[in-house]
């Protein structure tokens, strides 16, 4: 187990270096230069070239990367081309907003998705199962973006119940976190259902029933405990797609998190910020996957990493 954790901890920096190289090259391969965007379409090529030189983007890729990597190790991702603030400060201000939004959405997703999936499994192939599954398929299919706009129009503009934009009060969390929770709720509900169906068919459950245990106790303590492992896996592995969803949700709701920062920065080709946000997001995803694996090992005595 210790060896396993050690290996993971060694892998993390390697993953970060790999990702940083990929992002670095991909960004610069992307058409659209920051200098052209800053100088505007009416600028002459000479003016654009001078801006390019000032930004240091005329240097070789390797030179640029080494400078970036050298500074990044010391926690310095450079300054934003747009706000001229240190990237690390820009990110640090926003990470809490994204984390609280993502965690709220996850809590919602788990507390709705798990019971819904259990209902599906318990009433397998009967109408409550169909209802749960139809809703789950719809939830997994709707575009996040569209849902967000519909919810805003209905609850904020038409009814005036909830704030439209920003993160100013606890009410501000309601619409964005629900929107963001829709997809993981659907995924968790489906995973819970299939894993419960499998467990409920096993011998020990039949034994539990036969010896007259309370139904509630069978479902919640006996079956769910064994069904929970795939659920934890899916929750851990879906953190990345949750962050992906946050990009869209934050943009629509003017949520001051790293997702919106990312979108604004891509539009502007703000290389330092895009690099910084990507690394932070990758770090978060890798960390979440790692924690999920640890949790699985803890929950299932049969799994041991050696």
């Amino acid at each position: 187990m210790k060896a396993y954790i050690f290996r993971k901890l060694i892998a993390l920096p390697l993953i970060l270096v790999g990702v940083s190289i990929l992002v670095f090259i991909a960004l610069r391969a992307l058409p659209g230069e920051p200098a052209r965007i800053m100088a505007g379409p009416e600028a002459t090529q000479e003016a654009v070239d001078l801006v390019t030189i000032r930004l240091g983007l005329d240097r070789s890729l390797l030179e640029q990367y080494l400078t970036f990597a050298g500074n990044a190790i010391r926690g310095d991702f450079g300054d934003s081309l747009r706000s001229r603030l240190p990237v690390i400060q820009e990110i640090a201000e926003r990470v809490p907003y994204t984390l609280t939004l993502a965690l709220t959405a996850y809590l919602l997703a788990i507390s709705i998705g798990v019971p819904a999936g259990m209902i599906g499994a318990i009433y397998h192939n009967r109408w409550p199962d169909y209802v749960v599954m139809i809703i789950a398929i719809m939830g997994a299919s709707f575009a996040n973006f569209w849902l967000a706009l519909m919810a805003m129009n209905f609850f904020s503009v038409q009814l005036g119940w909830l704030p439209l934009l920003g993160a100013n009060s606890w009410q501000s969390y309601i619409l964005p976190s629900i929107t963001l929770a829709v997809l993981p709720t659907a995924v968790i509900a489906r995973m819970t259902r299939s894993s419960m169906i499998e467990v409920l068919g096993q011998d020990y459950v039949r034994t539990a029933r036969a010896k007259g245990l309370q139904v509630r106790s069978i479902y919640w303590s006996h079956a769910l405990r064994n069904a929970v492992i795939p659920i934890v896996t899916i929750v851990g592995l879906n953190f990345g797609s949750l962050i992906g969803g946050a990009v869209v949700t934050e943009t629509v709701f003017n949520w001051p998190g790293i997702g919106r920062l990312m979108v604004d920065s891509v539009r502007f080709r703000d290389y330092p910020v895009i690099q910084g946000v990507t690394l932070v997001a990758v770090f978060g995803v890798v960390l979440m996957n790692f924690l999920a694996e640890m949790l699985i090992a803890f929950l299932n005595p049969r799994i041991r990493f050696d």
Partner: peptide, 13 residues
Amino acid sequence: SAETSVLNMALQT
């Protein structure tokens, strides 16, 4: 906001 429909909604609210 880069979303034009969001601009429109923000004015209405």
